[in-house]
Design a protein around this nucleic acid. Sequence first.
DNA 1: CTTCCTGCAAAAGTTTTGCATTAAC
DNA 2: GTTAATGCAAAACTTTTGCAGGAAG
Lengths: 148, 148
Amino acid sequence: MTGETDNSINEKVNSLLFESGHRYSTVRRRLVSVLRSAGKPLTNSQIVDADDSLVQSSVYRNLNILEEAGAVTRVVTNGEFTRYELAEHITEHHHHIICTSCGDVTDFSLPSTVEKSLHNSLQKAAHKSSFSVQNHRLDALGTCSSCV
Amino acid sequence: MTGETDNSINEKVNSLLFESGHRYSTVRRRLVSVLRSAGKPLTNSQIVDADDSLVQSSVYRNLNILEEAGAVTRVVTNGEFTRYELAEHITEHHHHIICTSCGDVTDFSLPSTVEKSLHNSLQKAAHKSSFSVQNHRLDALGTCSSCV
DNA sequence: CTTCCTGCAAAAGTTTTGCATTAAC
DNA sequence: GTTAATGCAAAACTTTTGCAGGAAG
């Protein structure tokens, strides 16, 4: 899915947690492993379903810690549930196709030329509103093949 | 804010509600009026604050009905609360700058050239994943001038 | 051992719903 | 008059938190 190996991901997450004063515990390793192999943003209950040893409240708690450490990113869709994925500096910059029917999410990337003109336009637009833009979020909304 | 008059907005909302078997009641008119004059997406409590005659549960209920009718759109940010705004075909296509600190949202637009190349790239990317894309959502994430 | 982490259960916060009353047509 | 909409209170659901026991270094 990405060029990153499990080892290099674990090393990065370990550093990030250490820098923020946390341990890379067994539960956190399992969490990262589930997100890594899913390759798309998951809800809390999808994570628990994917690994029965995980407990709902611990997943919520550790996703928050991993987010603060910069290892995972909160992804909001149109649905009721918040989803999480590995942070982009651990994987790579990408966008989401969101199914407005079932809420499922798939990753995709844009040509770098489009990314660049987008970035430039955003800087200009933000400047007008005296916002400082850190990054952007682009989602395609539609219907997935199972929901047609 | 847009070229639309209050009258033309009300006519459109009235049609949309009528087509979906609902009435354009007083509460719904007030709701539309609050969203119209805000010119940016509002949370349920921001709406209630803006018009004391409105009641929390009725606002939730009517926002859902207006959304089903296609008159308003649900806007998800990084914050806890769902926000709503008038649908784009009632106002105009635009994007959001979201303050990751306070959650506030401001509208902005992109040059149509950028919009077009974006649209084309999305179609291509979606095609690969056998998704049918209806529209897109582009948000700039950053810090607003009050939160610096 | 000392500190952090986990799991369970209970709480908090947002959104939805049931029902009797009121408004719209 | 008949049907739909409203307000209140209670419920449902997602997410957070307190605390006692367990794991990690």
